[in-house]
Design a protein around this nucleic acid. Structure first.
Length: 902
DNA sequence: TACACTACGTAC
DNA sequence: GACGTACGTAGTGTAA
């Protein structure tokens, strides 16, 4: 441990007098604050320890005043230009992510002494950043001083020059000299020279006084004064001697250095107009990240507080302000953020220090009444908007949606532990809090089931006995805070910081708005379709059972397989691993081509069953009272960086078949609005051309050619002009196959040709585009050596089974490795577009809003008279979202429903 | 009754 | 067995 102790109070005065006056635009004087920030910035860069604290005086009255009333009694009032800077400097410390420490009744110097002692006891060392002579007595092995203005160390030589003795004799000397400014009397007639001489000769103050009293000292004025003012000397020694037994407001291990939050610091520096510092920090090296993590595992879990009074809430909030960060976790009565009602809020301000504020619980008789939400909101709202306090969530989107619906207007700045994890570990493990706690903290979280019960016995969280609910909720916040301390610094190490800060984090408010806005569906249309499908299914079912010669459940693949391949004895049956007959569409298609009528009828039935249950009925049930459905986008699920969509999944709405397209047409614009669809054309193939640097493919994209036709021309040696559709379709399948990490077997199956023929196509493809091979090999090697592959934008996609000893699993992992940079790169691009688009719309004065994302498509809702402009702007923003070596093209469409918008 | 699992099918 | 990424429904088997 290398504990850096900054003498904040001493520095303020020195900087105020040393630095020319400067004011910020609102007229507040900030020269001392500026000096402080400069000093801290330099300190963080050049003298970084493992731990750091800034120590301040708490007030004027201390134990020394009780000991000797005149002590520091005649100090002049601080100049008015300095007064406001006391608070600002504490704010500056917070902005830098540094703990400020002060304690009533104790001077900063005593706290510094106590912390230095604690550092030594912990087996570490201390660096005191101050030039105050009163602190020189603390210098010893393991304790050094650093002059913050001159940026030079203060050692024994400097102490000797100042006092003429070694540091351990400093207080003896000071006791004799006194200090006029602080009203430390000393012994009249004895100055620095004389004091040093006496202590040098006799060793200690007591020895000097004894020698004077006993007559061992040569007679004269000096001896008389020593005898007369012996008590003054003794009290002076007590006054200058620093006490090292002050209680430590924060344990020394909690002072572990962590990196500041760029957004918080940036905001503070902006407010004070410290452009030069901002510039310097952006350019300078960041502190070592490994030094940045406080010891998350140090404190025990549990022992949390249930907050039921404004006093307790205010205290916790004040602790959050002191810390400069707070982990926040809401509790609701529903896992879905769009349905769940706010039941309480957990706050954690330090590892092991967390509280839960119940707000909507159904209390037991023995429970203290909970706070009223409007009252709590008054206090919490200020915290949520306090630019100097970072709000840390696990799944910020969920929390923000609940808070927004509960009336919280804004929460900033914030961090999201789930996204911090996802940005560097997609594909490696899941990013739920339980998994992260287990993995990074070796801590098993209380399960929700163990608190609320499961199955029929499951209680609403509102009815869970408060003690258990509170412990559960506070632990969640505690764990979130510890995970943040551990994972946030790793972003920089893993080069994932930009992806997190500029893409993932900025997507949070965009998705929040999309989810809350929802998309309108035509419920009447869906109901009509449901009824229609049901009728047609009944008819088809009758046909099927007539053809099969018996009644059975058509929806049961097991029964169907037995009917087809056993009772009817049809050919082409294949058993799966469980011994069941396969009846999927490829099997049924094979039968249908042989003229087996029942197979075709089953396919028809299945299509209708799918559309009815998964889409028509489900969407009707999911629509709100205004006919809008609100999906939930999952930001940390897909292994490649894609979003996914649940409750309901709106990323797999049918479009390919005629009947399926009818479902898509039930997604409609609000009255007076149109839907605008904008989708990237061939974005993954373009990324392939880019990352694999395939000359012919890049050239083809640059020319704007029909890429599948060009591939067909290259692979099959036919001219582009007048190409038949079947040839082009085969080439298209090959292109997709490449993106998926092609195999001859898979491609053959897709094309309905043998593996041998498919292999010939692939060989021809590789011959025409030789760079592909190199890309595939290099990507597999990258995955093998690192365990992950990178998208062009630096997203890490883990491929954990790449070294599996089973060849099958290894081959699968290799295909994942080949596909991930392409799929993930496309995800990165559209996410960047989504971050930019709302701002661009606002700037252009357009009120079009994003409502859905479907991997390579954005769907917007725009007033009719803005639709064309919105489509154009969407195209511009999406095409310009990223710069790669081939052009990005976007196709747009406008319609009253999603089907017609394509 | 509740849950886990399989089979299937929809999207990009 | 089988070219990538997801999610939802229904049927089925097992456990409580």
């Amino acid at each position: 441990m290398r504990l850096v102790l900054v003498d904040g109070s001493g520095f303020i005065f020195r900087a105020f007098h040393a630095i020319p006056d400067m004011t910020r635009p609102d007229g507040v004087h900030v020269n001392a604050v500026f000096g402080f920030c400069n000093m801290i910035a330099r300190l963080m860069k050049e003298h970084t320890g493992s731990h750091l604290a800034v120590i301040f005086d708490a007030g004027r009255m201390t134990f020394r005043n009780r000991m000797y009333e005149p002590y520091k009694a005649h100090r002049p009032e601080a100049p008015p230009e300095l007064v406001p800077q006391f608070a600002l400097i504490r704010e500056a410390a917070r902005a830098f992510g540094l703990p400020s420490i002060e304690l009533d009744d104790w001077e900063a110097d005593d706290l510094i002494a106590a912390y230095a002692k604690a550092a030594l006891q912990a087996g570490g060392e201390a660096v005191i950043v101050s030039s105050d002579k009163d602190l020189m007595q603390l210098i010893r092995p393991g304790v050094t001083m650093l002059d913050p203005m001159k940026n030079v160390p203060i050692g024994e030589a400097e102490v000797a020059a100042k006092f003429g003795v070694t540091p351990d004799k400093v207080i003896e000397v000071q006791a004799l000299i006194g200090d006029a400014v602080d009203n430390v009397p000393g012994v009249r007639g004895i100055g620095p020279k004389g004091a040093a001489e006496l202590i040098g000769q006799y060793g200690t103050l007591e020895a000097v006084l004894e020698a004077a009293k006993s007559g061992a000292m040569k007679p004269g004025k000096r001896r008389d004064m020593l005898v007369e003012f012996a008590d003054n000397a003794r009290i002076s020694k007590e006054l200058v001697k620093l006490r090292d037994d002050a209680p430590l407001p924060e344990p020394v291990e909690d002072l572990a250095l962590r990196h500041w939050d760029d957004a918080v610091l940036s905001a503070f520096l902006d407010t004070n107009n410290f452009k030069s510092i901002k510039q310097r920090l952006a350019l300078s090296d960041a502190p070592r990240a490994e030094a940045a993590a406080p010891k998350a595992e140090a404190a025990a879990f549990g022992g949390y507080e249930t907050i039921t009074s404004m006093a307790a809430l205010t205290a916790l909030i004040e602790a959050a302000r002191q810390a400069g960060f707070v982990a926040v976790d809401v509790q609701t009565d529903d896992r879905n953020s769009l349905h769940g009602n706010l039941l309480g809020i957990a706050l954690a301000v330090a590892p092991g220090r967390a509280g839960y504020v119940p707000l909507g619980h159904n209390l037991g008789l023995e429970d203290t009444p909970q706070l009223l939400w409007p009252d709590a909101l008054g206090a919490l709202g200020a915290l949520f908007t306090d630019v100097a306090v970072l709000k840390i969530f696990h799944d910020a989107k969920y929390n923000l949606e609940v808070l927004t619906r509960a009336g919280v207007a804004q929460v900033a700045p914030l961090d999201d532990v789930m996204l911090i994890s996802y940005a560097q570990d997609a594909g490696n493990f899941s990013h739920d809090r339980e998994t992260l706690a287990r993995k990074h903290l070796a801590h098993e979280l209380k399960s929700f089931d163990s608190v609320a019960g499961s199955g029929r016995a499951r209680l609403s969280f509102a009815n869970v006995p408060l003690a258990g609910a509170s412990a559960f909720a506070a632990e969640a916040a505690d764990v979130t805070l510890r995970l943040w301390a551990m994972l946030k610094p790793l972003l920089r190490v893993n080069k994932s910081l930009a992806l997190y800060e500029l893409v993932e984090k900025k997507l949070i408010p965009v998705l929040t708005a999309m989810e809350l806005h929802g998309v309108m569906v035509d419920r009447a249309d869906l109901r009509a379709m449901s009824v229609e499908f049901e009728g047609r299914m009944a008819e088809i079912e009758t046909d099927i059972q007539r053809l099969a010669g018996q009644e059975f459940n058509v929806g049961s693949p097991k029964q169907l397989g037995e009917i087809l391949f056993e009772r009817m004895g049809l050919p082409g049956g294949k058993r799966g691993k469980a011994g069941a007959w396969g009846t999927d569409s490829s099997v049924l298609e094979g039968l249908a081509e042989q003229g087996i009528e029942v197979a075709q009828r089953v396919m028809d039935w299945r299509q209708l069953a799918k559309l009815k249950s998964t889409y028509a009925d489900a969407l009707i049930g999911q629509a709100d009272e205004n006919g809008r459905v609100h999906t939930s986008f999952q930001m940390a699920v897909a292994a490649t960086g894609r979003l996914s969509s649940t409750d309901p999944n709106l990323q797999n709405i049918p479009i390919r078949t005629v009947e399926g397209a009818r479902i898509r047409k039930t997604f409609i614009a609000a009255p007076g609005c149109s839907l605008v669809s904008a989708d990237y054309s061939q974005i993954e193939l373009r990324l392939l051309a880019h990352v694999a640097d395939i000359a012919a493919l890049k050239e083809s994209f640059a020319r704007g050619e029909d890429i599948h036709a060009r591939t067909a021309s290259e692979v099959f040696g036919v001219p582009m002009a007048g190409m038949d559709a079947a040839t082009r379709r085969r080439a298209k399948a090959i292109n997709f196959g490449i993106i998926y990490g092609i195999s001859a077997f898979g491609l053959g199956r897709q094309l309905g040709v043998g593996a041998g023929e498919a292999k010939a196509y692939i060989d021809a493809y590789f011959k025409r585009y030789p760079e592909i091979r190199a890309y595939m090999e290099a990507t597999k090697e990258e995955a093998r050596s690192q365990g992950y592959v990178l998208t062009p934008f630096g997203r890490r996609c883990w491929v954990p089974r790449i070294k599996d000893k089973m060849p099958q699993l290894r081959a699968y992992a290799e295909r994942q490795a080949i596909n991930a940079p392409l799929q993930g790169g496309a995800a990165d691009i559209i996410k960047q577009a989504m971050v930019k688009l709302p701002k661009a719309m606002a700037r252009a004065g357009l009120s079009a809003t994003l409502i859905l994302q479907v991997h390579d498509e954005l769907l917007l809702e725009a007033p009719d008279d803005e639709a064309r402009a919105a489509a154009e702007l969407a195209r511009e923003v999406m095409q310009g979202a990223a710069e790669i070596s081939v052009p990005l093209t976007v196709e747009t469409g406008i319609g009253k429903n999603w089907g017609d918008a394509h």
